[in-house]
Nucleic acid binder design. Structure first.
Lengths: 125, 125
DNA sequence: CTTGCAGCTGACACTGATGTCAGGTCCTAC
DNA sequence: GTAGGACCTGACATCAGTGTCAGCTGCAAG
């Protein structure tokens, strides 16, 4: 598959795909005149990359443990990094969960404050 | 409280606090010669702002529903925004949770691959 | 062979939150 | 009143990911 198709199926821009490769997150074969050729696994790989990016990991860090996915061995440093990032992720999830609850509360409040007259009507808003 | 103290208690930099104000996230009284004066509630406010920022909300969006917190009323647009962002947050939490699980798996794999010889020893690694 | 779309590289721009510096002002302690 | 630290504004820098443009090349269809 060429870069345009990969971009379309993953939702990443062509620009981003080249950037991921430049940062060592993604590999490609070059076919003949230098055009990138991707295996079908690349789709999943790109989705994973974007997931990590959305989670706040910089490409530099992602690049460090990406090798785990295809090489058979891992170094102590990689395992350490994975563990640290997993912790970070857990903390982030906890924080977002708390924030989500706070937003629920804010939404409740907001609805109460929407039409003050309704409060006397009853709870059937 | 002045800006230095607020910065110290919240962990935000003085620079960031001024930026939050500039973006409409934070208010301050100006005392005499133009120095910012914060009420004690500002501490909580700043923590909330930073929490939202960490969750990926841009200041522009935060600024839109910040008024809910102190004005007594909310507009339909604000409630809509809150709901949309809560959804976004929920989706983000789900995604991070999945990613976290995937990392757990990666860590397991990584440990297995660490010293291949150990695999024959048994599960007590 | 030509046409034209897709791809290539390289460079510059942008956004958003923050750092940092310069030059000036406030305010507290002496 | 003066020294010095905290604060002010404004500007420029940084980082990461991405957009975008220019100029060139690959490749498939006619």
């Amino acid at each position: 598959m060429r870069i345009g198709e990969l971009a379309e199926t993953t939702g990443a821009s062509v620009r981003s795909l080249r950037y991921y490769e430049q940062q060592g997150l993604l590999q490609s074969q070059r076919s003949g005149g230098g055009q990138r050729e991707y295996a079908t696994e690349a789709v999943e790989r790109v989705q994973l990359i974007r997931c990590y990016l959305r989670s706040g990991l910089p490409t530099r860090v992602i690049a460090e443990f990406m090798p785990c996915l295809h090489s058979g061995t891992t170094t102590a440093a990689q395992r350490e990094l994975l563990t640290v990032e997993r912790e970070r992720l857990a903390a982030q999830i906890a924080e977002l969960t708390e924030l989500s609850e706070r937003m629920d509360w804010m939404i409740d409040q907001a609805e109460l404050r929407a039409e003050p007259a309704r409060q006397a009507d009853g709870a059937a808003a």
